[in-house]
Design a protein around this nucleic acid. Sequence first.
DNA 1: CAATTTATGTCAGCCATATTGACATATCTG
DNA 2: CAGATATGTCAATATGGCTGACATAAATTG
Lengths: 188, 188
Amino acid sequence: MADINCTELAPAAPQSEVAAVADAAPTPRWDIIELLFFAYRDFVGDADHVLETFGFGRAHHRVVHFVSRYPGLKVADLLDVLRITKQSLGRVLKQLLDEGYIVQKAGDTDRRQRLLFATAKGEALVTELARLQTGRINHALAGLGTGDAATVLTFLRGMIDQDDPDKVLQSILAGAPPSGGPQSKDGR
Amino acid sequence: MADINCTELAPAAPQSEVAAVADAAPTPRWDIIELLFFAYRDFVGDADHVLETFGFGRAHHRVVHFVSRYPGLKVADLLDVLRITKQSLGRVLKQLLDEGYIVQKAGDTDRRQRLLFATAKGEALVTELARLQTGRINHALAGLGTGDAATVLTFLRGMIDQDDPDKVLQSILAGAPPSGGPQSKDGR
DNA sequence: CAATTTATGTCAGCCATATTGACATATCTG
DNA sequence: CAGATATGTCAATATGGCTGACATAAATTG
């Protein structure tokens, strides 16, 4: 049994006999599982700190980020990307609208749609947060060879569900953003 | 102002004139910023789905995971790793104790300490969740060359604050876990 | 045109998880 | 013994998810 006297930290393989699991499970990638946890924690921590001074949370960041990056995003698109309900989005979005980080515009062809755009204020916030996070990313990439950034991108893409119907995600996975618009005009 | 007529999805660089920011900010790594968001979302989504059937949430997973991986972890250590308050931890930990996923044992030298250990039940849960996540990781790594896993590890380590006082994190960043020898001892 | 569907907004309430502050208990240390 | 430490717990609060129900406007369809 696990060394009960051990007060020190030592990742002891927990799989004593339990590991004789059914169908030859591959060795768990404990390293990547845990590094992802810490990396993401610190990554979003950069933004969290700044957002606090604005009275915003992560939810606000996600919304204004994607609106800024994909101008004209519809509310429905945003719901797909963030995978939250419109009620949850509504609260956050209303704040961002009220405080002038985002504006709405009725769609041309379908005037029920509210197309979302970041204001200069919104862009500034997104840019500042991206600057922080980019600093961390560049620091991490600095320890790698020239071609290795591509490896990281490939890995991250491989971590994402490929069968996701989300328009924004598809556009990202496609690699080169399709600015002319191969995307169908009306998602869904 | 951003192209108001654009109904299409096209990540349009938001830095039109705003980009003339203060001190020559490096080009934001929008690609990695967004891929990290989606990758982590899907990564934790694997576990979330299973946890739901147990009536647990992400918080429970984090606790039982680190307890399982680092047997004998103290409550204070766990607070450092998870960066939450003991009140938040208390609620989740109590559930895991009550339902037999974790047991406590008083420290030998300091009997105030409650050293935490995962039970077989707890190990089984952690193993199952790690199995899912490892599947996703291996799928992502499968698209890479042989040496590229090391690149990913280096990148992820570079994303983490190095000055963190947390014992568990230091042990992870150190690469080879101390005491008991390298975990590769028996594989499995 | 009328009926229906769609896109969005909103109200009311619930739940999970985080927070702070205060306080209790047991135990170690000087 | 006096204090510091490790933990547990109570009470109140905030954030950000959720569901269900309902309202409005506009598009679509019969």
